[in-house]
Amino acid sequence: MRHRFQAEQWLPFPIEDVFRFFSKPDNLPKLMPRWQHARIEKMQLVPPPLPDPDKDAALAGAGSRILLSFRPFPLCPVRLRWDAQIAEFAWNQHFSDLQIKGPFAYWLHRHSVQSSASNGPTGPGILGTLLHDEVTYEIPLGALGAVANTLFVRHQLRRMFAYRQARTLELLSAGKHSR
Rank of each mutant, 00 (worst) to 15 (best):
1 M>P: 00
2 R>A: 08
2 R>S: 04
2 R>P: 05
4 R>N: 13
4 R>V: 10
9 Q>W: 07
9 Q>P: 07
10 W>K: 08
14 P>M: 12
15 I>T: 15
15 I>A: 13
16 E>G: 14
16 E>H: 11
18 V>R: 01
19 F>W: 05
19 F>Q: 05
19 F>S: 06
19 F>A: 09
20 R>L: 10
20 R>F: 12
22 F>E: 07
23 S>Q: 12
24 K>R: 14
24 K>P: 14
27 N>W: 13
27 N>Y: 15
27 N>G: 11
27 N>T: 14
27 N>D: 15
30 K>P: 15
31 L>C: 06
32 M>D: 13
34 R>I: 12
35 W>V: 06
35 W>D: 12
35 W>S: 09
35 W>Q: 08
38 A>C: 14
38 A>V: 15
39 R>E: 09
41 E>N: 04
41 E>W: 01
42 K>I: 01
44 Q>I: 11
44 Q>Y: 11
45 L>Q: 14
45 L>Y: 13
46 V>S: 01
47 P>Q: 15
47 P>I: 10
47 P>M: 13
53 P>E: 12
55 K>Y: 05
55 K>S: 03
56 D>E: 14
56 D>Y: 15
57 A>D: 13
57 A>L: 15
59 L>M: 13
61 G>R: 01
63 G>C: 02
66 I>S: 00
66 I>A: 01
66 I>Y: 04
67 L>A: 00
69 S>M: 00
69 S>Y: 02
70 F>W: 03
72 P>N: 00
73 F>Q: 03
73 F>M: 05
77 P>E: 00
77 P>A: 05
79 R>L: 00
79 R>Q: 04
83 D>G: 00
83 D>R: 02
84 A>I: 05
87 A>C: 04
87 A>I: 06
88 E>R: 07
88 E>G: 02
88 E>I: 03
95 F>T: 13
96 S>V: 06
96 S>Y: 11
97 D>F: 05
98 L>A: 05
100 I>N: 04
100 I>Y: 06
103 P>R: 06
103 P>E: 09
106 Y>W: 01
107 W>N: 03
109 H>S: 07
109 H>K: 04
110 R>G: 08
111 H>M: 04
113 V>H: 13
114 Q>V: 08
114 Q>Y: 12
115 S>A: 10
117 A>M: 09
119 N>F: 08
121 P>M: 12
122 T>W: 15
124 P>C: 12
125 G>K: 15
126 I>L: 12
127 L>T: 10
129 T>K: 06
129 T>A: 10
131 L>E: 00
131 L>C: 01
132 H>I: 08
135 V>K: 01
136 T>S: 10
139 I>Y: 02
139 I>H: 01
139 I>G: 00
141 L>Y: 05
143 A>G: 04
144 L>G: 03
146 A>C: 04
147 V>C: 03
147 V>N: 08
152 F>A: 10
153 V>Q: 08
153 V>N: 06
154 R>I: 15
154 R>L: 15
154 R>P: 14
159 R>A: 12
160 M>E: 07
161 F>D: 07
161 F>P: 03
164 R>A: 08
165 Q>T: 07
167 R>W: 09
167 R>A: 09
168 T>P: 14
173 S>K: 08
173 S>F: 02
176 K>E: 15
177 H>G: 14
177 H>P: 13
178 S>N: 13
178 S>D: 15
179 R>Y: 12
179 R>C: 09
